[in-house]
Design a protein around this nucleic acid. Structure first.
Lengths: 155, 155
DNA sequence: GTCCGTTTACTCGGATAGTCGCTGTCCGAGTTGTTAGGG
DNA sequence: CCCTAACAACTCGGACAGCGACTATCCGAGTAAACGGAC
């Protein structure tokens, strides 16, 4: 039970792309070098973000990746879901209905309590991630760092 | 990113053990049959719970597992942590300090914003799981089911 | 009848294979900018 | 000088190995009960 390493990469790269001028694509190799990541494998993760409609990929010279919509409309949950899949962390196997102690369907009209608590916990986790946008992550960078990155991406 | 299947087994078995008379151990095979689980592999998970001090294992005839402390003092988080490990779901690799865009240590006095949000989300998740005890799970069973299980375990 | 030693059966525990998904890498498809040639 | 067409370089995209963790299983170590015999 741990998140893929690429989640951290995706969030940081999205926050970095938020500092690029609108419509400008950033090369994959640049982001990989900027954060010291393996170039090819980073592409694997950015692909997933592009498929999810979070990033837009531009091929050819002057190509790269740009945000598919304003950074203020991209939450951390969006990035995590795109990279980890939308499946629940916990999937109830309904073991209460199996084995020698199986409950009859009449007793299982109400959802499994264990599953309910797990879902509630996961919702709390998701809500926290949904409450933070990529734009906010970019804004919370130190001012000088933000300016430096904007200069690197703008030129 | 998904929980081990054994988590569900562990929680249900703990809730079942909460219905057994104090001091009485329940055989592993009984629990496996009760929920339709693979006997040997269930043992692997119960071992982890025993090592974590949640269950107490009793060898020999009339042996089995019993709760190591009152069910009201065992939370779902305890069970999950025992089976999945205490490591964080997200581990910040501090990529902001690596690569060509590495930040100087002076800029990294404050923790990484991404890491902070991830920790906050995970704390929300953990808090929800910590708020429910195994005793409550057992109490929320339908009354007739609870009585039936108590009778199965008591005799 | 009581006590003790042996036997027996039963339970958990760790060590051992199999499978799936994440990690890491490579080369090909597609697009754009460039450049050379002709009008 | 301008237009066109072919070329070349650069970018992402999907297909191909490597590794670790979860899944599944088996047999041995240890224990408590039961049983038989002696006193």
């Amino acid at each position: 039970m741990k998140l893929s390493e690429g989640v951290e990469w995706g969030v940081h790269c999205a926050a970095l792309l938020a500092l690029a001028p609108p419509g400008v694509a950033v090369r994959r190799e640049f982001m990989a070098a900027h954060y010291g990541l393996p170039d090819a494998y980073l592409g694997k993760n950015l692909q997933a973000l592009a498929r999810a409609g979070i990033l837009h990929s531009v091929p050819g010279p002057h190509g790269g990746y740009r945000l598919a919509r304003p950074a203020s409309r991209i939450t951390m949950l969006d990035v995590v879901t795109a990279l980890e899949g939308s499946a629940s962390v916990f999937t109830c196997q309904e073991i209460r209905q199996h084995g020698s102690g199986a409950l009859p369907p009449a007793e299982c009209v109400r959802p499994c309590t264990v599953d309910a608590v797990m879902k509630q916990a996961e919702n709390a986790w998701r809500s926290t991630l949904r409450s933070v946008t990529v734009a906010e992550l970019a804004d919370r960078l130190p001012a000088d760092v933000r300016k430096r990155n904007e200069r690197l991406l703008g030129g």
